[in-house]
């Protein structure tokens, strides 16, 4: 049985111009001790889907799903109080901006022990040793003295480590990391990613990595979910996905990377991600797809073998490229 099972998750936002579907029927199942990456560009709904799971969306959002099960418990049927017991303890989330995720008014030690008190009860002082232990675990040097530091006295990388320490404090079964390294420098990013993977292995956690960076995914994840404009276009094992993408969007995204460029120009995807008012009929990717056929413009595709496409790419029989082939600019 998977640790987390989400079937047909849909999130709608009420906006000034009517309702906007940010996440459109996403299925996701995560096993224990698995690293899953959710990849997508901005506006693909990757954060929204996970925030919906955590119940952290604003009042304008409507969440619906056929099933959300975590560790055998049905999250949908729960009331808020029961849900809160699971979220924050068994499911934790770290965010992109480490500096703003910590409260600037309190010391690191206070915030860490506060989390422990919240979940295990008792007096805050009794958790000081545990807090030091956690800080050491996430690789913060001189942990005892850092307990009395305020967030602004630490660098971005250090703050992110503290955030991770707070989130693993309750030994969650699932850690969701929303762009954990986007705000950090490359050398620090490498450190943090390594730390996350190490913790995942030592603590038997499942890890969901939300990111826009294909290279980060390639180096960490076991399974990849690709989102585009709220649609879950492809879900495969990382190795397969990078060597042999089956959805045209995944392929185009990989080809757009500078390291895959042949010649001076990059293989850009023409056009932009559709917004609220210019959603195409049929497949959502059809205006930018270089394999587009008539059927794609008419009918919404069905998911087949994890790929949401009328004509998934095969290694041998790729459909012939249309005239839009290799358009470099919109």
């Amino acid at each position: 049985m998977p640790l987390l099972e989400i079937v047909n998750l849909t999130v709608d936002f009420a906006t000034a111009n009517g309702s906007f579907r940010a996440v459109d029927s996403i299925d996701l199942s995560i096993d224990e001790r698995e690293i899953v990456a959710i990849v997508g560009e901005s506006g693909s709904g990757k954060s929204v889907a996970m925030l919906a799971l955590m119940g952290l969306l604003p009042w304008t959002a409507t969440v619906s799903a056929d099933c959300i099960r975590f560790d055998g418990q049905d999250l949908l049927g729960m009331n808020d109080k029961q849900r809160r017991k699971i979220i924050g303890k068994d499911i934790s989330m770290i965010f992109q901006e480490p500096m703003t995720s910590l409260n600037p008014c309190f010391t690191i030690g206070y915030q860490l022990t506060e989390v422990l008190c919240q979940h295990f009860g008792g007096r805050r002082r009794s958790y000081n040793n545990r807090a030091v232990e956690l800080l050491q675990q996430v690789g913060i040097p001189a942990a005892e003295t850092r307990l009395n530091a305020y967030p602004h006295q630490l660098s971005g990388g250090m703050c992110q480590r503290v955030m991770i320490a707070m989130m693993i404090a309750c030994q969650p079964k699932l850690l969701i990391a929303d762009e954990p390294t986007t705000a950090l420098d490359v050398t620090i990013q490498a450190q943090i990613l390594e730390l996350l993977v190490e913790l995942q292995q030592n603590n038997n956690m499942a890890l969901v990595l939300i990111t826009h960076d294909m290279a980060v995914v390639a180096e960490t994840a076991e399974r990849v979910v690709v989102l585009y404009a709220g649609w879950q276009v492809e879900q495969r094992s990382a190795l397969d996905l990078f060597s042999n993408p089956r959805h045209p969007y995944t392929e185009a995204l990989l080809n757009a990377l500078p390291e895959r460029a042949q010649g001076k120009l990059l293989n850009a995807i023409p056009g932009v991600v559709p917004g609220q008012l210019d959603r195409p009929k049929g497949c959502i990717f059809n205006p930018r797809c270089c394999y587009v056929q008539d059927l794609c413009r008419q009918q919404i595709p069905e998911r087949q073998e994890g790929v949401l496409c009328h004509y998934p790419l095969e290694l041998d029989l790729k459909p012939s490229r249309s005239s839009q082939d290799m358009v470099t600019d919109s």
């Binding site: 000034a16 111009n17 906007f20 917004g275 609220q276 008012l277």
Partner: peptide, 16 residues
């Protein structure tokens, strides 16, 4: 999530 292509009058959109 603002649309890039807007055919309606800009003012109407802003007021709305």
């Amino acid at each position: 999530k603002n649309p890039t292509v807007v055919s309606k009058s800009l003012r109407v959109q802003q007021w709305r």
